[in-house]
């Protein structure tokens, strides 16, 4: 309800402004008896073109009364006054005493036309719908006096640059730090990865090929695949483990080679004849199982993992012996 009242009053104020415009300066200053203008002054009587001035008006009125001010910018526009409103009314109750309220209305104005002006009247509305016109002071707007005899033309000044504050810089600094940190972490990750270390720099303990192979073979043995009719899976597991072991031990790309090619590439390696033959047999049996639906005998299945383990152990022992021999030769 109160809101509706304000809307109506605002409409009245706009109408009042229009009426004021229509009647120009013919309207006499009117104010109700309960309203008293205690002060109405400008912060400066005279300003240079473009300078700003505060118009301050202190009104005194009964507490129960209200006034609604018409926007001063509209008043100025309606009167086509050479005034510019920078900040419109700012109302502030400065005192309430014995049922009397004191209100201060402040306006920030400027002008870009030189001259001596009487500012347009302030327009307000009472709750009863009466229009109130309040007196306004004079303002003297002057130009800068230039001594044309002594005047020296100066070049146009460049754009003024304000110093960048730390607050403005803060997001950029944070972004730069974050990028630096990310770059460092990436560098450290690549470096540690190459050095076979984990993210925190601790060396990653990589098991030697024979340990990995023996672990895998033990796992296969424990899974009891051939006992459950999964011979193909069992032999694939055994041969894949051996191929990975051969690849890691001898650097032969065994995963991309056929059984015959693997055996061919091992001929020049130091492998005992017995182990070589056993591996060949194992690969041949595995190929039969994998590609020819061959069902091996129980003893063949039982021998597959032990044969693979024997090959891994024998080749590992051979390597140890070779290293020992090499060490002795160097001494």
């Amino acid at each position: 309800m109160r809101r509706l009242q304000y809307i109506l009053m605002l409409a009245f104020a706009v109408l009042a402004v229009e009426r004021l415009s229509a009647q120009e300066q013919m309207i006499p200053i009117e104010k109700p008896a309960w309203l008293e203008i205690k002060e109405s002054s400008l912060s400066r009587d005279s300003i240079l073109v473009g300078e700003q001035v505060v118009w301050s008006t202190v009104l005194s009125m009964p507490q129960e009364q209200e006034l609604l001010f018409a926007p001063y910018a509209e008043v100025v526009e309606a009167e086509k006054a050479p005034i510019d409103v920078i900040h419109d009314f700012k109302l502030d109750t400065i005192a309430i005493k014995n049922g009397i309220r004191e209100i201060e209305a402040r306006l920030l104005l400027t002008s870009f036309d030189s001259g001596y002006y009487k500012l347009p009247l302030m327009v307000a509305l009472t709750p009863q719908g009466d229009t109130v016109y309040l007196d306004s002071p004079f303002l003297d707007v002057t130009n800068i006096q230039i001594d044309t005899a002594k005047f020296v033309m100066h070049d146009i000044k460049g754009q003024m640059r304000y110093p960048i504050t730390f607050r403005e810089m803060l997001p950029w600094i944070a972004l730069a730090l974050a990028l630096l940190l990310l770059g460092y972490l990436l560098y450290r990750y690549i470096k540690y990865r190459r050095e076979n270390r984990d993210f925190f720099g601790k060396p990653v303990v990589k098991d030697p090929p024979h340990i990995i192979a023996l672990r895998e073979l033990d796992k296969l043995h424990g899974e009891k695949l051939w006992q459950n009719g999964k011979e193909k899976l069992f032999y694939t597991g055994v041969t894949d483990t051996l191929r990975e072991y051969i690849e890691a031990r001898y650097g032969v790309s065994a995963m991309e080679k056929t059984s015959a090619e693997i055996m061919e590439s091992l001929t020049d390696k130091k492998i005992e004849e017995r182990n070589y033959r056993e591996l060949d047999e194992l690969f041949k049996t595995a190929d039969l199982v994998k590609f020819a639906k061959y069902s091996p005998q129980v003893h063949e299945n039982e021998e597959a993992v032990p044969a693979a383990v024997r090959f891994v152990n024998a080749t590992f022992m051979q390597e140890l012996e070779d290293e020992k021999q090499k060490g002795e030769e160097q001494q």
């Binding site: 056929t258 059984s259 015959a260 090619e261 190929d287 590609f291 020819a292 639906k293």
Partner: peptide, 11 residues
């Protein structure tokens, strides 16, 4: 003279 194909045959 084999009744099955092995990777060697493909290669």
């Amino acid at each position: 003279r084999r009744g099955y194909v092995i990777p060697e045959d493909v290669r």
